[in-house]
Amino acid sequence: MRIQLELQGLSQFDRSIKIQYQKSACGPVTALTILRYLMPNSCPYDASRLYRLLGGTRIGLFTWRLKRNLRKLLGPNWDIDTCSMDEAKEELRAGRPVACKFDRYFSFHWFSSYDFSYHWVPLIGFEEKENDLTLIIHDNGGRNRPSRIRQISYEKNKGILTFVKISPNTKKFELLTMLV
């Protein structure tokens, strides 16, 4: 089975992002890319503003900070939380990308080889194969290189991966509409 969402990526080194933020802008750029997909034509943020609002730092964006500050920005009608690989696959099946963090430093996997050492990316799909699960991601680009779609082995990287779902909370929305 293969699922791949059509999502417009953004490079963290895009000229629209403040130069001092670019090296550590992968988290805010990932969040912005997902929000633009989920809220087409209505996302009020740009990457530099989101960097400040989410609490980006020179060493990156911590998962707890992304979740806490994105909850504050989006409000109670959104479900923002860490999720498992199975839950991430369900989000993708429902048509929603997932924020995916590679982090070998804070997960204490310093000596193994991974596709990224520390990097946030939008997870836009997956393909199930016999011996592995292939993750389909947008890599947020590099200096002089635009964002591009890549395929990454889940098995090779699973020890350092964290997934964060960002989805409308339909149960709260349905309850609110019933009360009105």
Rank of each mutant, 00 (worst) to 15 (best):
V180R: 09
E155N: 13
A31N: 00
S42D: 07
E128G: 04
H119G: 01
L50N: 02
I17A: 03
F126V: 03
K158F: 12
V180I: 07
L35G: 02
N69R: 13
W120F: 11
P97R: 06
W120I: 11
K158R: 15
T33E: 03
Q4H: 01
L7G: 05
Y114T: 03
T82A: 14
N140L: 04
E174W: 09
P122R: 03
R145V: 11
L38W: 03
Q151R: 15
K158T: 05
F116P: 00
T57F: 12
G27W: 04
Y118F: 12
V29P: 02
L133H: 08
G56P: 04
A99S: 15
P97C: 06
D46L: 01
R58H: 14
M1T: 09
T57W: 05
N157M: 09
F163K: 06
L70Q: 07
Q20G: 03
I59H: 10
K101N: 05
P76T: 06
N41E: 11
R93M: 11
T170A: 14
D86V: 15
G141D: 09
Q20F: 12
R15C: 02
F163R: 01
Q151M: 07
R104Q: 14
L50H: 06
Y37E: 00
L161R: 00
Y105G: 01
R71H: 10
R96D: 02
E6L: 12
W64D: 12
E128R: 11
D103M: 10
M39N: 05
L70T: 03
M39E: 09
T170Q: 15
K101C: 06
V164D: 07
N41K: 13
G60R: 01
I160R: 01
